[in-house]
Computed example of a mutant assay.
Amino acid sequence: MTTLRVFADDALARSSAQPRINGLTRYAGELTRALIDTAPPECDVELIASSRPKSALTELESEFPAATRTTVSRLSHCVLASAWAGGIRVAAGTGILHAPSLFAPLVGHDRSVARQLVVTIHDTIAWTHPSSLDGGTAAWTRRMARRAAKHADAIVVPSHAVAAELTERIDVGERVRVIPGATSSSIVLPAEPEVRSSWLKLPERFVLASGSMDPRAGIAELIQAAALPDFHDVPLLIIGDDEWRGQRITEAAMLAGLPEDRVRPLGTVSDSDLALLLKRAEAFVAPSYAEGFGLMALEALAFGTPLVHSDAPALVELASGAGYPVVRHDAGSSYAERLAAAVGNVLHGDADAESLATLGRDRAKAFSWRDSGARVWQLHAEL
């Protein structure tokens, strides 16, 4: 029996009492399930977790009941992350190891002991927009990426855009493999959508986005766009918290001269509410200046929601012509003006919203977690 040992911490990065909207958490959970579901004959999946309360381990086992077993370290997540970043060989593990992030034992090991290690780097934000990350996350990520270049047998990235950007920054040789994510099967409409829509006080028409006042997200420019005539006074609903490091979405809307009901932060939403929002939105806008993949944009495509997106390489790659791209940098006009014009074209202009919806649904079918899981197994087999 061949066992693939998967680091499972990222799949439980948030409490089970909270909606699981975090992109890394969703990716890790969905990929782990896919690896279990697509395991070849005579192969199984073992989970590896850091020390945590019994309740969290129970949750882990309930999330992945088909995993063969769970091995728990005596050390906490933080201790392991610090030790591995410092090159300390603790709880390194042997056998065939797969990490859905850089949380992995990227340290030197005894070459007489068989070990194969594949890790995942989701984006290059730690280099391009380090201020977007909390605390020392950017420095830790860069350090672990350098360790990955030295100690990992392969590095998985979600897009060709990230592959190109990463190879410009660290020497990874020929070890990068592009294996994208997909939409989640848990994002389904609620049983009574009209009742839920009323409870959420959804306007009859609205444009949807996701993000914060982090400059990388482009939400500030989108709010400015909402104040321009091309936006046609359609309300803008934003998934995510109102406040980011002292900057508030509601204050930005007020400074843009928008009425209180025109821009509304929704906070964290459940999977069923996300499905409802995507289904009801007249457009989804992804204005980010930098992305690694664009999971929320892909979910919009899957629901047939017309997608307006920046020309960030990963988003252009993801949409592949199924969205309405907007140039981020152009001396001829402001980014807010270009975003407003694009939204206006989708709502009332030359862009064919029905065609975008059809193209989006077709494009989303190109992504499958089962395919991603099978490709990970194939990668390990090739190594």
Rank of each mutant, 00 (worst) to 15 (best):
L4T: 06
V6C: 10
R14N: 13
Q18K: 12
L24G: 04
R26Q: 14
Y27T: 12
G29V: 03
T32Y: 02
L35H: 15
L35A: 13
D37K: 01
T38S: 13
D44A: 13
E46H: 02
K54M: 15
A56F: 06
L60K: 03
E61R: 14
V72R: 00
R89Y: 00
I96A: 12
P100G: 12
P100T: 04
V107T: 14
D123T: 04
T128A: 15
H129W: 15
P130N: 03
D134Y: 05
G135K: 02
G136R: 11
A138C: 08
A139S: 11
T141N: 09
A148P: 05
K150T: 12
V156E: 06
I170W: 00
E174Y: 00
I179E: 11
G181S: 12
S186D: 15
V188G: 05
S198I: 04
K201Y: 05
K201C: 12
E204C: 08
A209P: 13
A220P: 08
I223R: 00
Q224W: 00
A225N: 08
L228Q: 15
H232R: 10
L237Q: 14
I238C: 11
I239W: 02
G240V: 11
G246Y: 02
Q247S: 13
V263G: 11
L266Y: 02
G267V: 06
G267N: 03
D273G: 02
A275E: 07
R280Q: 12
A281V: 05
E291W: 02
G292V: 07
E299K: 00
A300H: 01
A312E: 06
A312N: 07
P325Q: 03
H329Q: 14
D330V: 07
G332T: 14
A340I: 01
L347G: 07
L347P: 12
D350K: 10
D352N: 14
A353Q: 09
A357L: 10
A357S: 15
A357E: 13
L359A: 14
W369G: 12
W369Q: 15
L379C: 05
